[in-house]
Design a protein around this nucleic acid. Sequence first.
DNA 1: ATCAAGGTTGACAACGCTGTCAAAAAGACT
DNA 2: AGTCTTTTTGACAGCGTTGTCAACCTTGAT
Lengths: 344, 344
Amino acid sequence: MSKSTINDVARLAGVSIKTVSRVVNRESGVRDATREKVEKAIAELNYWPNQSARDLAASRAHLICLVYDDPSAYKLPSSGYIIRLQEGVLRVCRSLGYELLIHPCNYRNDDVESELKFLIQRARPTGIVLAAPLSNIPKIVRAISATGTPLVRLSPGQKLSKEMVVATNDREFAAEMTCYLASLGHRRIGFITGHPRHKAVGHRFEGYKAGLKASGLTFSEELVAAGDNSFGSGEAAALKLLDRKSRPTAIFAANDDMAVGVLRVADRLGIRVPDELSIAGCDDITLAEQIHPALTTIRQPFAAMAEKATLMLVKGTEESEAPKGTVIVPGALKIRESTGPAPG
Amino acid sequence: MSKSTINDVARLAGVSIKTVSRVVNRESGVRDATREKVEKAIAELNYWPNQSARDLAASRAHLICLVYDDPSAYKLPSSGYIIRLQEGVLRVCRSLGYELLIHPCNYRNDDVESELKFLIQRARPTGIVLAAPLSNIPKIVRAISATGTPLVRLSPGQKLSKEMVVATNDREFAAEMTCYLASLGHRRIGFITGHPRHKAVGHRFEGYKAGLKASGLTFSEELVAAGDNSFGSGEAAALKLLDRKSRPTAIFAANDDMAVGVLRVADRLGIRVPDELSIAGCDDITLAEQIHPALTTIRQPFAAMAEKATLMLVKGTEESEAPKGTVIVPGALKIRESTGPAPG
DNA sequence: ATCAAGGTTGACAACGCTGTCAAAAAGACT
DNA sequence: AGTCTTTTTGACAGCGTTGTCAACCTTGAT
């Protein structure tokens, strides 16, 4: 292991440490010949700058903090979501020389706010990427904002704001899914709404209505059942929808967990999927692909969103003008086995 | 946001910065009265030490690096595993003031070794927690060892070694599961082996045999089918086992993915679980609890293992004697719906 | 009181780097 | 060659902490 310092490099290259620093930091105004000398010395000594020293001297930390709802606080099958977020942030961090600090946090705790302030004070990150659903919780957003740390929120219901937000187009792709179902010949397309506090799923409901209209179908309360994003509520809603005299030939659930619930109910009732009933979800959870029949759903671009968010944070810090406003990263339909032509 | 330094605290408390440093670092030899004065000043100024400066001055980083197989490199449903590892490491990090650097890495890349050396040189972590399956790959272990960074490997086949290793008792709990099935009256207990390169699942096979012997049952090749840890191979193996004239009344798969495959096959063949066939897996993946019937399996203590590993790393650094050898963290049987009394 | 021993405290120099600003070198023109 | 401008380089002072070591108090024993 090398433990050579900038001094060693400077001595070997026959320049001052400042010049080495310039080369390392890719600053302009270094003659090519000099740069090469220094680079050779760096390579030879296997030198790598001491991050602590850099951060201290420049009084800035090369650190991005990703804050998300703690999955260990309760049985959450959402680990895939988190991994994808991490993936996106890491991609940017690696390429730009930042480090990633992950902070699962339980918003049900009374002291989340001080926990976050504590974290920020301790780590002094360059910026924070705040994942949903935390990004929708005012007290959390406020606690972070109060510290003055740059913050990018992920998909907090897409309402435009002056803060930095990265969202996806829930409304649009829900409409697209609805149109897709209609294009398969379905006329009675049911919808299962999600948890009222979860804004994104609200947008999907709107998208569903828009899709119906775009396909020349009329909206009917008859075809809507309420869920709360949970598997169980999906089952209950499915039971309700499928019990009706003229039952839907397709059911679009506001998220995959509920869609899987529908799938289970259909199985139990002996309704063949997709022959007799098409089922679509939203989120593309890991299970969606493993279940049988594989679930048609919408893949949320979590990694891409996180990547974008991190980029905004870094750009905002390194360049003078911090990017503001909402950036949309579109989701993509994943057509799999659970949807097919309308029966009859 | 406070940006007070140790100087401000020292001035307010009327002591030298060194004394403040002593209080902050809980060093002995500070009079109680002094300590209290300082603590009051710290609280009042909302002071928190600058990590970069500390690390620089003490030339040590408060950093743990968790290296695991990159789940984004291929479709892995293993995100739950990673999340639990992170959880364990984070618990220790938080309580001991360390930070966690996560590093998913794809061992299929040719340049993993330089990638890791690069990472280590750049981040200079206190130590590295290396998760399976990476912990079983010699070139990776070697690359890290070569840097001299303290390393704890997670469950690399449990072979005793002089290095730091945290493993679980695959053999023992597989035996236990087998005995449990036998105790339910099963006499023909099938087993689906896992990927030959994955040592842990090999231990499970041994445990299965030991369990049979302990239960007074004889081992028969007839009851064993080979898999490769994948869902699909579980299905294939199940088909093979269930096709035989005197088919097993219970199937124990070396991992959950394959067990779920068995479940699906049973469903397709109209074999009721657990009435006609008991199925057990191993790992307690997220899906195990969500599937119907919920899968009896063995919960691997991933979080606890990671926690233990991190602790070893920190203790090894902070105390003079580094803990060596293998530490075993036992897994736990999770009896759920997919196992029941033997038919007849 | 006086002194040694031990417990507390502080002065000051690192730690390895970056920011500032001035000095030196290199070009550009007479 | 001389002067002015621009580019390139370096000296040096921090950044906020810890390690070292000497100086300072206490205490208890004489």
